[in-house]
Design a protein around this nucleic acid. Structure first.
Lengths: 345, 345
DNA sequence: AACGTTTTCGAAAACGTTTACCTAAAATAT
DNA sequence: ATATTTTAGGTAAACGTTTTCGAAAACGTT
């Protein structure tokens, strides 16, 4: 870097005023005259001045930087459809409000090892958003319990703001719709049981069926990892091999549902004529190719935006911001992968 | 934040040594005795000391932070399959090397407006990686021409390191394979013409056909935005309506190819029996559902990793790092969406 | 015993800001 | 005319580091 970086001092010298005056002028304080301000701004521009985030952060204890912890089972929230959309929306909102986004280091192998919290303190994040992660991780817990403003997504903690997709309502609507199409033999290949998301959906699945007066055999419930086409296919095969197979299969997500689709097509069965399937999430591809997937479209845009906006509220007003759990409803996308069954009673 | 942040000074007081000694001990300098180092580290740990990135950056002019500029036409590199995978790989490598990743603000509407370069200077990024962007944007140009270490992805600039996917070879292999399957009437619905990627593929498409002695009518070439299922479908319809329709259609990417698939299925045609299609990128879903897409799998993992590793080389050794354009080959995934045509000569 | 060398540490400046407090002049009020 | 307030700007400390330089102490060598 041959180029020296131009600082307030350079401007102050060029303008014949003090450094303080320059700082105040650039920050539009009221105790600097209009003329001086203009002069200083002009010179700053001309000299190619850029403020120095590090110095500002050091002095003000404000980094204008938000830490993001997005990790999924596969250790990459980035390539995860649902979370990448949430993150994208979060990022847009945060940027509008003048914040930058930095990832909280997910690599546990590096030499200079730091816990999530250490990392957040080190970088001086004004706040942190957490999602898509093993919330039982003690490091995550440490971060959440710290005094850094935090918002969690799809998992709630005591006395912390969270934004969660309404899995209860989503699952209820989905199951009800399927029921209304005449299905009574409904299977569910759900995700890993120890996540809050799975638990909500599973509970709602049971509850809805019970309310509808439908009872299903235990063998209709299987577990397969989220977003895993292969495992979902295997589970589907198991269901199809049952003496009394289901007429409709729910999956943990749209991706997994494609695994089911593979299994079903491999047997020469048709969707939805011979068997129905439904996904969850509403990722683009599922809503664009045939058979259009019956699914719950999660409002990733709103989730991300709200997470950012609540976090920023919390940053700017730690005492005054109400701590709440915000539930964002999804919408049923009927699609065409669930067919109508004539009930002969 | 009621909690005072513990600094070197606190440690120095607790240990009865100077701040300088603490700093040196923590940084493992050779002029501090083993005993003192141990003592200091112990106290630091016990006091819950965390270094302050801002202070370090201010003093050393090193932020250990890399700026990422990933913007596509839809203004979100994050939800873009190809780029999110590249970014994910980049991030992993960078984190291993002790760097954090911060997005260079993409929002041009915010009040505190800054150019990309301003933003990079403001944050003191040690380096910058650019991809997925309108490279004709003057702001991008300004950033690239600056003296900040930079690596670009999928676009090359004079005297700058770039990592590019081998679109020439990829397209050649794809077209050659299709040719070998007997196709002579090959159409190409390509992406927007002013990107380097499109130009490479298009040139290779022409060249390969010429080498193979195949000539195709102008009407076989259409443009549709990348990753746009709707537009790809429309373009496909146009091709299918031709008096002399193609037997195989290439798309700008796998996503667009699904648009073609829709158009084709809507007419009751079968893939690949009645018509063949091929995508590009090799995104997961295309390789997992039937018909398995014939496509070129881009090595996103290697592209991201190399971009990070070259950028870090450049950061650590600005003079000594060779400036080169690294070309990463993709691999042909034969899939099953391109069928064999019996040639009756 | 005298000298040189090595080891270990500290003092202080510097990085680029912000801000509490001060001062001098100008404007206003009495 | 003086007293008071307002305006405009400056001084200097502080944020938490790193690093240069110097100095004292310990050690080794003749």
């Amino acid at each position: 870097m041959a180029k020296r970086i131009v600082s307030l001092k350079d401007i102050s010298k060029a303008c014949g005023v003090s450094i303080a005056t320059v700082s105040k002028a650039l920050n539009d304080h009221s105790d600097i005259s209009k003329e001086t301000k203009e002069k200083i701004r002009e010179v700053a521009e001309q000299l190619g001045y850029h403020p120095n985030a590090a110095a500002q952060a050091l002095k003000t204890n404000r980094s204008n930087n938000i830490g993001v912890l997005f990790v999924d089972e596969a250790n990459s929230g980035l390539t995860h459809d649902y979370f990448s959309h949430v993150l994208d929306s979060f990022k847009k909102k945060a940027e509008q409000e003048g914040f930058d986004i930095t990832f909280i280091n997910g690599d546990r192998t590096r030499s200079n090892n730091m816990s999530y919290l250490s990392h957040a303190i080190y970088r001086g994040f004004d706040g942190v958003v957490i999602a898509c992660v093993d919330f039982s991780d003690p490091e995550v817990d440490e971060l959440i319990k710290s005094n850094i403003p935090v918002v969690t997504i799809d998992h709630s903690f005591f006395n912390r703001i969270s934004i969660v997709s309404d899995n209860i309502k989503g699952m209820r609507e989905l199951v009800t719709y399927i029921y209304e199409q005449g299905h009574r033999k409904i299977a569910y290949i759900h995700g890993h049981e120890d996540t809050a998301v799975t638990q909500s959906r599973l509970a709602s699945f049971y509850k809805t069926l019970q309310d509808l007066g439908v009872s299903i055999p235990d063998e209709y419930l299987l577990e397969a990892p989220y977003r895993n086409i292969e495992e979902a296919k295997k589970a589907t095969d198991k269901l199809l091999d049952l003496k009394n197979p289901p007429t409709c299969i729910l999956y943990s997500d749209d991706f997994a549902a494609f695994g089911g689709l593979n299994a079903i097509r491999e047997r020469g069965l048709r969707i939805p004529e011979d068997i129905s399937i439904a996904g969850y999430d509403g990722i683009e591809i599922a809503r664009r190719i045939s058979p259009l997937m019956t699914t719950i479209v999660q409002d990733t845009d709103r989730i991300g935006r709200l997470a950012a906006s609540k976090l920023i509220d919390l940053i700017n007003n730690p005492k005054g911001t109400i701590i709440e759990q915000i539930v964002i409803p999804g919408t049923l996308e009927k699609g065409e992968s669930v067919g109508r069954i004539k009930r002969t009673k």
